[in-house]
Structures are given as C-alpha cells and as structure tokens.
C-alpha cells in the first residue's frame, strides 16, 4: 500500500511540474513567435467573423486531401 502511495505522490508531482512547464512554454512560445513575426495568432479570431461558405479560409486546406476525405465519407 505504501509503495502505491509513494508512486502516486511522485507521479503527481512530476506530472504537475511537467504540465506547468509545458503551459509556461506555451505562453512564451505564443508571444515570442508573434513578436518575431513568424505567426499571427489574432488572425484566427476572424474565423468566427468571416464564416460564409465562400469567404476565404484563414489557413486554406489542401484541396486534394479534402476531396479524398469527402469521397470516402459520401460513399
């Protein structure tokens, strides 16, 4: 029983630290890549505003890949 307890405690601490680091890494990544001009996250907000079928996608998907999936799902 004590062994399980111990493993439980250690696993909990390690995983929490790990996830916290990832979360911080994520924050830094988000802001740094935007500062450097690599990516613009705020443009994604447009996905809700320009959402007509014929409005241009923010990130266009490869049309061939799409057709392939579409075919499979309508068979």
């Amino acid at each position: 029983m004590e062994d399980i307890r111990f493993i439980q405690g250690v696993a909990y601490i390690i995983f929490t630290i790990f996830l916290t680091l990832i979360l911080y890494g994520y924050i830094i990544h988000l802001y740094r890549s935007e500062k450097k001009g690599e990516r613009d996250y705020e443009k994604y907000a447009k996905m809700a505003l320009d959402d007509e079928l014929d409005s241009p996608p923010v990130d266009k998907r490869d049309e061939k890949e799409r057709e392939k999936k579409l075919k499979r799902s309508s068979e």
Binding site: Y44, M47, A48, P57, D59, R66, K69, S73
Partner: peptide
C-alpha cells in the same frame, strides 16, 4: 470528426 475531416479551413477555431 467527420465534419472536421472534410473541412476547408485548416486551423480549428477555439470553439
């Protein structure tokens, strides 16, 4: 996941 599979917009909106 079916609808996501045939999407035109590559990125997934936060919703």
């Amino acid at each position: 996941f079916g609808l996501i599979g045939i999407r035109r917009e590559k990125s997934l909106y936060i919703s």
